Simulated assay, not measured.
Amino acid sequence: MTILVFGQTGQVAQELQEQADVLALGRDQADLSDPGLCAEAIRRAKPDVVINAAAYTAVDRAEQEEALATVVNGESPGAMARVCADLGIPFLHVSTDYVFDGSGSEPWRESDPVAPQNAYGRSKLAGEEAVRAAGGAHVILRTSWVFSAHGANFVKTMLRLSETRDALNVVDDQIGGPTPADAIAAALLEMAAQMQAGKAGGTYHFSGHPAVSWAGFAREIFSQARRDVSVTGIPSSEYPTPAARPLNSRLDCAKIRSDFGITPPDWTAGLARVLRQLECSE
C-alpha cells in the first residue's frame, strides 16, 4: 500500500515516517497555501491512500492571518479530498477539538454541534466541511493537545522552562486529553489499512486519557522528568492570549473504538516514551 503524506516536519508527520514506509511531502514539494499544487501532487504520485498531517497550527497568529489559515486548513484539504474522491482512494485528515465552543464539562461527541471560538478553529472547520463535501471515502480525525519528542509542544516548553525556573503558573481551568503523536500516527495507519480493505470512514475523535488540566499535565511532566518545579494553577483570565482557548477540550472516543477497534492512549505512558526519547537525543 502506497501512502502519500502531506507534512514532513510536523509531529504526526514525523511519527508516520518512523512507523511506516510513506511518501512524505514537505512544503517545498506541496505548499498547502496552493491548493492546486496539492491536488497535482496526488495525481502525480498515484497513491493508494492519502493522509493530510500538515496544517497551519499557529493558533494566535491565525487571528491576524485567518485568510491564509483558511487556505491551508480549509481549501487545500478540500482540494486533496476531491482528487482522492475522483481517484477512488481513501483520504484521512487530522482535525481538532477547537471546532467546538469549549463549553460544559462532558466529552464532545462527533455528532455534537460545532461552534469554533477562534480563527484557527474556523479554518479547521472549513477543512472538515470541504472534505465531507468532496463525497469520497474519508476519515476526519479530531484530536487534541498533541505532544511528542519532535517540534514545538507543551512538554518541550515545560522542560525548557524548568531549566531556569523552579516555580511556574499554569492554566488550570482548561481541561482536555493530551495526545501522543505516535499514537495518532498509529491510529491513522490502522484506519488507512482498514479503509483500503473496504471499511467505511467518517468523523472520529481520538485523544489521550484521563482528562487533565494544563497545570495537571505540567505537574506530571515534572514528576516523570524528576524536575523540582512547583506548579500553581491559574485561571485562563490571568493568562490572556490573542485567540480564545476552549475550557472543555474533552473528546468522547467511543466511536473509534467501536468502529475501528482503536483504543485511546494513556497519555501518561506516552509521556514516559517521549521523555525517554528526549533523554536519548541529548
Results as ranks from 00 to 15, higher is better:
Ile184Leu: 04
Thr57Ser: 13
Pro242Phe: 01
Glu129Arg: 08
Ala152Thr: 14
Val170Ile: 15
Leu275Phe: 02
Ala149Glu: 04
Cys38Glu: 00
Leu32Pro: 00
Phe206Arg: 09
Arg245Asp: 02
Val94Leu: 02
Leu23Asn: 08
Thr268Cys: 13
Gln194Arg: 00
Ala85Leu: 12
Ala130Cys: 09
Ala200Cys: 05
Asp101Asn: 02
His150Glu: 12
Pro180Phe: 14
Leu168Trp: 01
Gln277Phe: 13
Gln14Tyr: 09
Arg142Met: 02
Thr9Glu: 15
Glu18Thr: 13
Gly78Cys: 09
Val229Met: 03
Ala211Trp: 09
Ala137Trp: 11
Leu168Pro: 05
Ile262Ala: 01
Asp182Gly: 06
Ala126Asp: 01
Asp48Cys: 11
Glu18Asn: 15
Gln11Thr: 07
Val94Lys: 00
Pro265Tyr: 06
Gly176Pro: 05
Glu63Thr: 06
Ala254His: 14
Gly270Ile: 03
Pro116Ile: 01
Ala200Gly: 11
Arg61Phe: 14
Glu279His: 15
Tyr204Phe: 13
Asp259Ala: 07
Ala200Ile: 02
Glu220Val: 07
Asp48Glu: 08
Glu110Val: 13
Tyr98Cys: 03
Met80Arg: 01
Thr203Leu: 06
Ala185Glu: 10
Val49Trp: 00
Thr157Ala: 10
Ala244Met: 12
Cys84Lys: 02
Arg44Thr: 11
Thr2Arg: 14
Glu18Tyr: 13
Arg122Glu: 00
Gln17Ser: 03
Ala39Arg: 05
Lys199Leu: 03
Met191Pro: 06
Asn153Trp: 01
Ala197Tyr: 02
Phe91His: 05
Ala85Pro: 13
Ser144Trp: 04
Gly216Ile: 07
Ala152Lys: 11
Glu66Ile: 15
Val59Leu: 04
Ala79Gly: 10
Ser258Thr: 13
Ala67Phe: 15
Tyr239Thr: 12
Arg160Met: 15
Lys255Gly: 11
Gln64His: 14
Asp172Gly: 14
Pro264His: 05
Thr179Asp: 04
Ala69Glu: 03
Asp182Pro: 09
Met195Asn: 03
Asp172Met: 07
Gly102Ala: 10
Ser213Ala: 08
Lys124Ile: 03
Pro113Val: 02
Asp173Asn: 12
Asp166Ala: 12
Glu238Phe: 08
Val71Asn: 00
Arg122Cys: 01
Ile3Thr: 10
Arg165Lys: 07
Leu247Glu: 07
Ala30Asp: 02
Ser223His: 12
Ala152Arg: 12
Ile184Met: 09
Ile262Asp: 03
Tyr239Pro: 08
Gly233Val: 02
Val114Pro: 00
Lys156Val: 02
Ser237Thr: 08
Thr263Val: 15
Ala218Lys: 02
Asn153Tyr: 00
Ser223Pro: 09
Val139Gly: 06
Asp112His: 05
Arg273Ile: 08
Asp34Trp: 02
Arg226Met: 04
Ala62Val: 05
Leu271Asn: 06
Pro90Asn: 00
Met158Tyr: 12
Arg257Cys: 11
Gln17Pro: 06
Gly177Trp: 05
Met158Pro: 01
Pro77Phe: 07
Glu282Ala: 15
Glu190Lys: 04
Thr203Ser: 10
